[in-house]
Design a protein around this nucleic acid. Structure first.
Length: 423
RNA sequence: GGAGAGGUGGCCGAGCGGCUGAAGGCCCCGCUCUCGAAAAGCGGUAUCCUGCCAAAAGCGGGAUCGUGGGUUCGAAUCCCACCCUCUCCGCCA
């Protein structure tokens, strides 16, 4: 959410930002409603002021045993008028608030202007792409060949786009989760958390999934609860409506959770394999920081996510998302894309973003500077560290052997009972 | 599911129709005392919106005692609904 005063004073800047994102919002209506609000407000407050002073007066008179009937009857009509003003004000404030909730964050100056994903510049490429003296297979063929993945039975149990792991496959998924959490907690200074996997509407609004993107979420019947699409949602909202002490910042949290996404509008995309599932596992990194250095923190966060890929020996590239491709709540985003030999392409495996004060304002997460008056919204950041299912797929494809077996990356071996997965 | 208790400032906790943005305490920040510290003493210390102001500071106004309604000239205090927490009983991983 943008700051009301900021928006009021920078309408043109916001218009440009929206145009760069290829979107528009009803800023004309906003200006109209905001003008209306500021017309009603002083009138109403003046009446309330009168009511407050006269009520005191009545109290004084009653104490002395004087008759206050005239004042009381006057205040009856004043109160009725106030009630009318309040209703009108509530209406315009509702409209303003709902417009505000639908305006995306302003991209940072360093976010390149562009139309869509084809305009995302590559920032760097890391690691050597493996060479094969046979035609590398896709991970779903490898996994099914090894008997560690079974999409057909998963579809029987639930439906399309659900994973089912067996044996060494299930063990490797678990090993990856432990491996990632261990690195982030022991080497990168994150505190492990294990949050709820369902959240309420307010929490979903806090991070920006609602109100605009409800169709992307799974919602429970008879409950106003949603399955989380990422741990970002429950973890960022840990400090919802709180004022954090300045010396507690920065706060780093990591969390393993399953993620649930309806993938509305992705029909026909990535229909096979682990890339696009309704349920997948992810280790997430979340930061609460002071505004002063949030972009430095983003670089560190990106590096924390990259570490996992480097440790696993997986080749990848980092791209900067352009204004046309960046998410609703983000001001700047790096995507990490892992090399998938079976598809001869880089595929997204992590997304690291600085949300600046956008989520903090929605979720009302503030901090207080020592010796200074008032509060400020914190800056929130998050990134996948990493998407576990996609990491699993990347390992199968990059470490596959001619005989159909898969070598377990060295860093992962302490977490597994084997150094090779064989049929 | 049944019975009861309760939600007040950063924290603890009093208030139960007007003089209460809210006693008292703690935390924190200044100052005094001290070579310095501790202790003690004094003072300050909520948030949001809004007017004056280029802005900051400051001053003025409004709002906020779980949330939303209601009663009243006036509500933290009374009434209704909802949410949440705790205790006991039942059920259950």
């Amino acid at each position: 959410m943008l700051d009301l005063k900021f928006l009021r004073n920078n309408i043109d800047l916001v218009k440009t930002a929206l145009a760069n994102r290829g979107m528009k919002a009803d800023l004309e209506d906003f200006e109209l409603q905001e003008k209306e609000r500021r017309r009603i407000l002083p009138e109403m407050e003046e009446l309330k002021h009168r009511r407050n002073t006269v009520s005191d007066q009545i109290a004084g008179m009653k104490k002395k045993g004087e008759n206050a009937e005239d004042l009381i009857s006057e205040m009856k009509t004043v109160s009725a008028t106030i009630r009318e003003f309040e209703q009108r004000l509530a209406k315009t404030e509702d409209v303003i608030h709902s417009i505000l909730l639908e305006i995306p964050n302003i991209p940072d100056e360093s976010t390149p202007v562009g139309r869509d994903e084809s305009d995302n510049p590559v920032l760097k490429t890391v690691g050597d792409i493996p060479e094969f003296d046979f035609t590398p297979k896709a991970h779903w063929d490898i996994g099914e060949g090894l008997g560690i993945l079974d999409f057909e039975r998963a579809a029987k149990i639930t439906g399309a786009r659900f994973p089912l792991y067996f044996g060494a496959g299930a063990a490797m998924e678990r090993a990856l989760i432990n491996f990632m959490l261990d690195i982030h907690t022991t080497r990168h200074g994150y505190t492990e958390t294990l949050p709820p996997f369902m959240v309420n509407r307010k929490t979903m609004t806090g991070t920006g999934q609602l109100p605009k993107f409800e169709e992307d979420l799974f919602k429970l019947e008879n409950w106003d609860y949603f399955l989380i699409p990422t741990a970002e949602v429950p973890v960022t909202n840990i400090f919802q409506d709180e004022i954090i002490d300045e010396d507690k910042l920065p706060i780093y949290y990591t969390a393993f959770t399953p993620c649930f996404r309806s993938e509305a509008g992705s029909h026909g995309k990535d229909t096979r394999g682990l890339i696009r599932q309704h349920q997948f596992n992810k280790v997430e990194l979340v930061k609460f920081v002071k505004p002063d250095n949030s972009y430095e923190e983003l670089e560190m966060l990106l590096n924390n996510a990259e570490t996992i890929l480097r440790e696993l020996g997986l080749p990848y590239q980092v791209i900067t998302l352009c204004t046309g491709d960046i998410g609703f709540s983000a001001a700047k985003t790096y995507d990490i894309e892992v090399w998938m030999p079976g598809q001869n392409a880089y595929r997204e495996i992590s997304s690291c973003s600085n949300f600046t004060d956008f989520q903090a304002r929605r979720a009302n997460i503030r901090f207080k500077r020592k010796g200074k008056k008032g509060t400020e919204p914190v800056h929130t950041l998050n990134g996948s560290g990493l998407a576990v299912g996609r990491t699993f797929a990347a390992i199968l494809e990059n470490y596959q052997q001619a005989d159909g077996s898969v070598i377990v990356p060295e860093a992962l071996r302490p977490f597994m009972r084997t150094d090779r997965i064989e049929p």
